[in-house]
C-alpha cells in the first residue's frame, strides 16, 4: 500500500487528535461514566424511579431499588464514591418488569443517580440524596 501526501497529512492529523484527546476528558468521573452510558444521547430527568433511604445509618449496606418501565439497561451511580459505578443491569426477554433492587456501599452523604437506557435509545435519569451517618468505604 502506498501513501499519498494527502493520506499522510490526514493520518498525522488523526494521530494528533488521538494524542490530545485525554485533555478533553471531563474531570468529573460521574459525568464521564454517564456520558459513556448515554453514548451521545441527551439525558433527561424523569421516567425512572429510584428508591433509596433518606438517611442511611450504615453506609456499608444501603438498600436501593430502581424501576424503569421500558428500559433495556440501567446503571446506578454513587456520585460521592471513589469509583462512581455501583451496578449495571441489563434486562433480558424473560424479565417480568424493569425493576431491580440491591444493596450498596456509600462513602458518605451524597446523591445516588440511576440512568436508564430505553428501548428507543433515549436515556432517563433519576437521583436521590442519601444522608450517610457512617461511611462504607472503611479507613
Amino acid at each position: 500500500m502506498q501513501f499519498t501526501r494527502r493520506d499522510t497529512l490526514v493520518m498525522g492529523a488523526g494521530a494528533a487528535v488521538a494524542t490530545f484527546m485525554p485533555l478533553q476528558v471531563f474531570a468529573d468521573a460521574t459525568e464521564d461514566v454517564s456520558a459513556e452510558f448515554a453514548m451521545g444521547e441527551a439525558i433527561t430527568d424523569g421516567g425512572v424511579e429510584l428508591t433509596a433511604p433518606e438517611i442511611a445509618e450504615n453506609g456499608n449496606t444501603v438498600p436501593i431499588s430502581v424501576n424503569a418501565p421500558g428500559a433495556i439497561a440501567v446503571l446506578i451511580l454513587a456520585t460521592g464514591n471513589p469509583s462512581p459505578k455501583v451496578i449495571g443491569f441489563n434486562f433480558g426477554p424473560r424479565a417480568g418488569g424493569q425493576t431491580a433492587s440491591t444493596r450498596c456501599r456509600l462513602a458518605g452523604t451524597q446523591d445516588v443517580v440511576a440512568l436508564a437506557k430505553m428501548a428507543d435509545g433515549s436515556v432517563k435519569r433519576a437521583s436521590a440524596t442519601v444522608k450517610v451517618t457512617i461511611g462504607g468505604c472503611g479507613g
Binding site: S83, V86, I87, A100, T102, R105
Partner: peptide, 12 residues
C-alpha cells in the same frame, strides 16, 4: 436471559 448485572466494588 432474564437479567444480567455488572457488579462493582460499591456493592455490599
Amino acid at each position: 436471559n432474564v437479567i444480567q448485572a455488572a457488579l462493582e466494588g460499591a456493592i455490599s
